[in-house]
Design a protein around this nucleic acid. Sequence first.
DNA 1: AAGGCGGGGGG
DNA 2: CCCCCAGCCTT
Length: 373
Amino acid sequence: MPKAGPKAEPKAGHRAAVETEDDRLLASAAFSQPLLDWYDQHGRKSLPWQRDPTPYRVWVSEIMLQQTQVATVIGYFDRFMARFASLAELAKAPQDDVLALWSGLGYYARGRNLHAAAQQVMREYGGELPTEREQLESLPGIGRSTAAAILAQAHGAREAILDANVKRVLSRVYAITQWPGQRHVEQRLWRIADHHTPAVRAAHYTQAIMDLGATLCRARQPQCFLCPVQSLCRAHQQGIAAQLPAKKPKTQIERRQRHGFFVLAHCEGQVWLQRRGASGVWGGLWCPPEFDDETRRQDWIDARHGRMVARGCIEHALTHFDFFIHYCVVDIARSEGHGAAVHDDTARWITSADALRLGLPAPIKRLLQEISL
DNA sequence: AAGGCGGGGGG
DNA sequence: CCCCCAGCCTT
């Protein structure tokens, strides 16, 4: 990889021999002011969590927005708020109810952490999210950037954020060609982010820089011709905006495959589901019984005198492997095995319709809907 | 088919 | 402290 990008040229001739990083910082307001002006004209101001931006609502939105685009989050957010209007209601809800509303959103640890954090806030802070960044960061699921976003959006505090949008914008404006995953690069980005965060209109500024990153200064095909800070942007001047931020040096993990063998046991319009263990794929979600191989699955079916009526395979892509979901539909009698555990916290007979109200992995949800036992 | 996306937890 | 990712969506 040609890393020989132009080193920052001293603009004035009489600079010190070793140019410090501070020498290259733009004036704080030279960046924030045009950004705020652009936000006033083009920024998003009526997203669900921007209307009535309480700490609780901002928090939930920020957790959902991790790894997930705004357009996807909106529906989940509205349903979540309809069911859990307050932090107290979230805290007292069963985890299943929380995961049910998270179903399809992915990264289910976010939902579990959100739920656990709500309970922690009830215990330790009397039900009010703390207003100290350090205390926020001690809650599960809240890191430095999410804590800052909550403080800025809900309290108007001057707190710098550094999510992927902001990293991209600042990497370009400052033409930072090193990978932001490197510690010193990330630290520098935090300093730059802090430098440009204004004391007044901090909430608007925070939203503005995220909006810019999401709409114009996006990962692919940045719309520099519309950008309010185009004239400041060193990457644009150098014609390398689209190549920044630098990508992680590829460690080339070979994509693996995994096969899971599932039984959709069917009886009187109901299906047998079990809660998965907390670790591993789809931790804590509900699923039909899964086996590592077809033999073990057949043993399970035979032991219950099941009658196979259909089978198939669907493929589901996860981060580092392709999951082949081999399923079969089996009629079994309710008396064959599970009579006692009709309905408890780890396994139950349930109709497909009711199952959709549990936390289900996306492909399992689709499967149940399509098969509609 | 590949790339984007924060924080926790594991090595 | 790195390093990695057990999930979706978009392009």
